[in-house]
């Protein structure tokens, strides 16, 4: 496992992870990139007729260090999360938060316009809005 579960003590998340690992073991994953659940950052994806909205839950990261790229219809979010290191005399009782490098990839729909991208980082959530092409927007057809 490359990534730790986002909410590791959540029983449902653990079941999800188990299901994913089973699917990977039997090569029946429906998507070529597997089911990306349980990675860091956690992601929510949605769409409106005008844009595709991607929310990446990546708390405690310097937005300047994030690498967001769109290439051939694939969005990649990569970066590194460095946590404060405890001093020598300290004892770590619970260690659940993700640390280290991460990379997540999302396949975008065909109708997005890679030149109409906006990215914001607010309260630890990276929001990426990618506009859809003008020609792909729904149009009302008037009947004469």
């Amino acid at each position: 496992m490359m990534y730790r579960s986002v909410f590791p003590r959540d029983v449902l998340a653990e079941l999800d992870r188990l299901q994913r690992e089973m699917q990977q073991a039997f090569h029946i994953s429906p998507s070529i990139r597997g089911i990306a659940r349980g990675g860091f950052p956690a992601m929510n994806v949605g769409g409106t007729p005008q844009a595709v909205e991607i929310y990446a839950f990546a708390p405690g990261i310097d937005p300047a260090s994030l690498d967001v790229q769109i290439e051939k219809g694939v969005l990649t979010i990569a970066g590194e999360r460095q946590l404060e290191q405890p001093g020598g005399e300290a004892t770590v009782h619970i260690d659940e938060r993700f640390a280290g490098r991460f990379r997540r990839v999302v396949t975008l729909p065909d109708d997005v316009d890679p030149n109409a991208v906006e990215a914001k980082y607010v309260d630890g959530v990276l929001r990426i809005s990618i506009g859809r092409r003008e020609s792909a927007q729904p149009r009302r057809i008037t009947i004469e």
Partner: peptide, 15 residues
Amino acid sequence: ALDMPQSMVASHTEV
């Protein structure tokens, strides 16, 4: 509290 457009339809939800 996420700033989400009203007409947004979720297609993949982890949170």
